[in-house]
Amino acid sequence: MSNLILIAKIDIKETFASKWFLFYLITFAGLIAIFFVTGVVDSRVAGFSGLTRMLLLFIQICIIILPIFILITTVRSINSNREVGALEYLLSFPISLKEYYFGKALGRAFTIFLPILLALILSLFIAIFKDTAIPWGLFFYYTLLLLVLSFVFLSFGFLISSIIKNSELGLGFSFLFWLFLLAFLDLALIGIMMQSLVNENIIYAISLANPIQIFRIAAISLFDPNLAVIGPAAYFILDGFGRVNFLIYSAAYPTLLGIICLVAGYISFSRRDLV
């Protein structure tokens, strides 16, 4: 256990010294600052105002940038050590593969979660400073959704890093995987629905296996309980799950998927040539 914490600390120190982390931190803190400067907290659009309005904008941005940010940074976590020879050096010490792998995952999780949490805390301070109402239930659940989304893409990154040894290939595959989840999957499902006789419930079920789609719909449901903006799919979700059960599913399924991918990545890492 001590070695796992040691590896996590090493990874955290390396990340804090890297330029990508500074850019990552500034991006999320800067978004909140921009919302404050441009008066988003004071505006009202479609009935949303204050912190709710700020979180609504933050949701739309996170859906796009958060997954790719996490993928391109975590997919190099093991490969970068492998390519510079640090992996072979670290494993020459009495450190097991499990301690190294999960220590890296723990350290990377900390550095990914930290800027998100700081940005959300900053939004709270802004709301308090502006003397606006704070929807605490919505805020805490949305924070949970962000952490769950971050965790599942962290796991995807480690799985890719364990399977694909070359960093450049890993980055390319990560980008294509992100595009597939973000756009191609939805477009393909719409095409199938329009051109074939596949039952729409099957298509909706496949779509809800996409963690980005789940995050998007769960976030929308916090502001629009009837899910009117997603059309007929709302009937499948509300009738099949119910709003409360869907919110639970939105947090539980990506967490379980992330655990499976993280463990699968470790199995691949431990069974393949390390260098």
Rank of each mutant, 00 (worst) to 15 (best):
residue 245 N to M: 14
residue 110 F to N: 02
residue 209 A to R: 07
residue 130 K to P: 02
residue 165 K to R: 15
residue 157 G to F: 06
residue 142 Y to V: 11
residue 202 I to D: 04
residue 136 W to P: 01
residue 4 L to K: 04
residue 272 R to M: 14
residue 97 L to R: 13
residue 145 L to Q: 11
residue 132 T to I: 05
residue 181 L to H: 06
residue 118 L to E: 02
residue 215 F to A: 07
residue 153 F to M: 11
residue 125 F to E: 08
residue 107 G to K: 11
residue 73 T to W: 04
residue 185 L to C: 07
residue 97 L to H: 08
residue 23 F to M: 14
residue 93 F to C: 00
residue 141 Y to L: 14
residue 228 A to S: 14
residue 103 G to Q: 10
residue 133 A to K: 08
residue 140 F to R: 10
residue 179 L to V: 13
residue 16 F to A: 15
residue 243 R to T: 12
residue 122 L to I: 13
residue 198 V to D: 03
residue 40 V to I: 15
residue 139 F to Y: 15
residue 246 F to V: 12
residue 33 A to D: 05
residue 33 A to R: 03
residue 174 S to C: 10
residue 10 I to L: 11
residue 174 S to P: 01
residue 197 L to M: 07
residue 218 A to D: 02
residue 47 G to Y: 09
residue 1 M to Q: 09
residue 239 D to R: 11
residue 210 N to R: 10
residue 188 A to P: 00
residue 178 W to E: 05
residue 250 S to V: 07
residue 60 Q to Y: 07
residue 154 L to P: 02
residue 206 I to E: 04
residue 105 A to T: 12
residue 55 L to R: 07
residue 67 P to E: 05
residue 55 L to Q: 11
residue 239 D to C: 03
residue 152 V to N: 05
residue 175 F to K: 06
residue 150 S to P: 05
residue 163 I to F: 11
residue 102 F to D: 10
residue 250 S to I: 05
residue 124 L to N: 10
residue 184 F to M: 12
residue 115 P to A: 09
residue 95 I to W: 00
residue 39 G to S: 13
residue 269 F to R: 12
residue 170 G to D: 03
residue 256 L to P: 00
residue 205 A to G: 13
residue 126 I to E: 02
residue 117 L to D: 08
residue 125 F to Q: 05
residue 220 I to F: 01
